[in-house]
């Protein structure tokens, strides 16, 4: 899995490509930690190219959400695919991490 960070001005986009599982979850945490450490407070994780997420990946997203909120910001997710949506709904985590249709929508109303 690959992660790319893009500065979008009012927020930072993290593009996650591949499988978000026990192998890649620590890298997601490190990527978001780095972005928050560099001053980013509002993070959007773009999951359009995330073909799979398991509970390790979900745990990493929740950990990243905590990091962003502890820094006074927030983390949101966008463009989720069917399998990721399934995991979010089964665990009820879609209430904590509500998916946005597009990256741009994630912080549009803030």
């Amino acid at each position: 899995m690959q992660f790319a960070i893009e500065d979008r001005g009012t927020y930072t986009e993290v593009v996650a490509t591949g499988r978000l599982n026990m192998v890649s979850a620590p890298t997601l945490r490190a990527t978001v930690d780095e972005a928050v450490g560099a001053g980013s407070r509002h993070i959007v994780v773009n999951l359009a190219a995330t073909e799979f997420m398991d509970s390790s990946g979900l745990g990493a997203l929740i950990g990243c959400l905590k990091v962003a909120r502890q820094a006074g910001g927030d983390l949101r997710i966008a463009c989720v695919q069917k399998q990721v949506q399934m995991v979010l709904e089964l665990t009820n985590m879609n209430r904590v991490l509500a998916p946005y249709g597009t990256v741009e929508e994630a912080f549009a109303r803030d």
Partner: peptide, 17 residues
């Protein structure tokens, strides 16, 4: 609390799926 858990959902998912 599910919202606080960063792990421990694996078995729950298996049973649901």
């Amino acid at each position: 609390d599910p919202a606080d858990l960063e792990s421990g959902r694996g078995l729950f998912l298996i049973n649901a799926l």
